[in-house]
């Protein structure tokens, strides 16, 4: 009994930890895509952020400097994305692929050259990372069955960036539905011509959206390398950017459902790690790959309209050209 409770608590805690980068990255995607700029490049921006954070933290010893560097690096790539897709009306998907490819190569090359550890950055110690915050009374209530551990290890005990991600969801929802910027953001993703004729600059609006995307991707990357992890490894995002995109699709481009998607994916990930080689009742040992691919299969089925239907913002993927 107690074992089961412990198991559940640790599963939940691990779900929260695994969901954090997905939440940050999919909210990042939310801004860009709701503004009509498809972003396949979340992966690359996150990866670059992860490298910049770890490298900076290793050199300066400050996680805050690491976070700032991650955001700056990711913003730079966001600007490249904006320059190609907004200013030059390039193909948004191709631009995203280019960013992912450049990021994959560049982080590996620079990590290898600067630290000479075969594409890794040095391991970071506690002072160079964002560590779990101890909540008041966590020790005191630890003895309370289930809830005590839940309070100490799931609600509390997480690092700062986790709480940032948790706050980012209502904040995004508020921005999108309660502010002028949000109204315009949603409008420009549906009908940029309506925004243009209303006297609002389409490029500037889209640039701002893309920059927010860069900012959040930077935080997501920093989380991977200097909060959850203790250093950068080659390709350490390992598809999380694409998974975040899938969660955004699953959430039909809305903040809270997207959060639910992220939690679902994170839970399957956490479960998968715990079921490795475990024989389940009735079915026996299930190949972990089956659990691992659930998010991908779900996304495919959803996009194909077999499970509900997810319709993207109408102008997503199209460059805005004044036409006559």
């Amino acid at each position: 009994m107690d074992d089961t409770a412990l198991w559940i608590v640790s599963l939940l805690a691990s779900t929260v930890r695994l969901a954090t980068p997905l939440v940050l990255a999919s909210l990042a995607g939310f801004y860009s895509e709701r503004a009509g700029v498809v972003d396949i490049g979340l992966e690359g921006k996150m990866l670059t952020g992860a490298f910049a954070a770890a490298a900076t933290a290793a050199v300066t010893g400050s996680p805050w400097a690491g976070l700032a560097a991650a955001i700056a690096a990711s913003l730079l790539l966001a600007l490249v994305h904006g320059f190609a897709c907004i200013t030059h009306r390039g193909d948004q998907v191709v631009a995203g692929v280019a960013i992912n490819t450049i990021a994959a190569g560049l982080t590996a090359v620079l990590a290898n050259a600067w630290f000479d550890l075969g594409g890794r950055t040095p391991s970071l110690d506690g002072g160079q990372r964002f560590l779990g915050l101890h909540f008041p009374l966590a020790e005191a209530v630890r003895g309370v069955p289930l809830l005590g551990r839940f309070y100490g290890e799931v609600i509390g005990g997480q690092n700062l960036l986790v709480y940032l991600a948790v706050l980012a969801v209502p904040a995004t929802s508020w921005v999108a539905y309660r502010t002028r910027f949000g109204l315009r953001l949603r409008a420009v993703g549906e009908n940029p011509a309506a925004v243009d004729t209303a006297g609002i600059s389409v490029p500037w609006l889209r640039y701002r959206a893309v920059l927010i995307t860069g900012l959040l991707c930077g935080v997501a990357g920093a989380y991977l390398s200097i909060a959850q992890g203790a250093g950068f490894q080659e390709n350490m995002t390992a598809g999380k950017g694409y998974l975040a995109l899938a969660a955004l699709i699953l959430g039909k481009w809305r903040p809270y459902p997207t959060l639910a998607g992220c939690l679902l994916f994170a839970a399957t990930d956490a479960l998968q790690a715990r079921l490795q080689g475990v024989a389940l009742p009735v079915v026996g040992a299930v190949p972990v790959q089956i659990i691992e691919v659930l998010p991908y299969i779900l996304t495919v089925l959803l996009l194909a309209g077999f499970v509900g239907k997810s319709i993207p913002p109408k102008a997503a993927g199209q460059a805005y050209v004044k036409d006559r």
Binding site: R178, T179, R180, F181, G182, L183, R184, R186, A187, E190, N191, A193, A194, V195, D196, T197, A198, G199, I200, K314
Partner: peptide, 26 residues
């Protein structure tokens, strides 16, 4: 028409003339 079809009439009317950074008062 330069309307955002997914928006309500009111949201369309306000677009570009929201009357402040927050929508509430507008």
């Amino acid at each position: 028409f330069m309307l955002v079809e997914e928006f309500t009439v009111l949201e369309n009317l306000m677009l570009g003339a929201e009357g402040g950074a927050l929508l509430k008062d507008g």
